[in-house]
Every structure is written in structure tokens, then in C-alpha cells.
């Protein structure tokens, strides 16, 4: 039941899109839940998340 409610497991492609989108918009509760669940088990996407955050930080530093 819970599984049906939360939908299919998030894959890396979709996780990477959500991680980028999260830099620009508030993700829904469900999107965040699925993303967190994925990041707990996927070291590659956790790296991708670090890289996305770093890009934001680096661009911020560039203009100051």
C-alpha cells in the first residue's frame, strides 16, 4: 500500500533532474521523500548532489 502510494523507485536519471530542479523550485513532499530515499542508497547521486551544490556556491563566489 505504502509502495503503491509512493510510486516506483526513483532512478538516477530522475534523481539528477530533481536535484537540479530543487536548486530553482520547492520540490513537493513526495519528490523530496523519494529523492532522500534514493540518496541514502546511491553514492553516485550523492556525488551529483555535492556537485550541484558546489556549482551554486562557485557561481555565488564568482560574483562577489
Amino acid at each position: 500500500m505504502l509502495k503503491r502510494l509512493l510510486g516506483h523507485t526513483l532512478m538516477c536519471r530522475e534523481a539528477s533532474r530533481l536535484l537540479s530542479r530543487g536548486e530553482d523550485a520547492q520540490l513537493s513532499w513526495l519528490q523530496r521523500w523519494r529523492l532522500r530515499a534514493h540518496l541514502r542508497v546511491c553514492a553516485m547521486c550523492a556525488r551529483f548532489e555535492t556537485q550541484m551544490r558546489f556549482l551554486r556556491t562557485a557561481m555565488g563566489r564568482y560574483r562577489t
Binding site: 532512478m11 538516477c12 556525488r47 551529483f48 555535492t50 562557485a58 563566489r61 564568482y62
Partner: peptide
């Protein structure tokens, strides 16, 4: 990505990327 949506070319480990921010050359590359 592979057909199933998993990484085919996964992101590399950048270590501590923020260390780059102290280097002028990094911003030239950027």
C-alpha cells in the same frame, strides 16, 4: 544513463571541491 535510468557515466568524486574556490585559475576554467 543506462536504459533503466541508472548512471552509465557516474559522477566522479571531487573530494573537497570548495578548496578550488581559493584558486584564481579555477575561475578562469569556469
Amino acid at each position: 544513463f543506462k536504459a533503466n535510468g541508472a548512471w552509465d557515466s557516474p559522477p566522479a568524486d571531487w573530494g573537497d571541491p570548495e578548496a578550488a574556490l581559493g584558486q584564481r585559475e579555477f575561475f578562469d576554467v569556469m
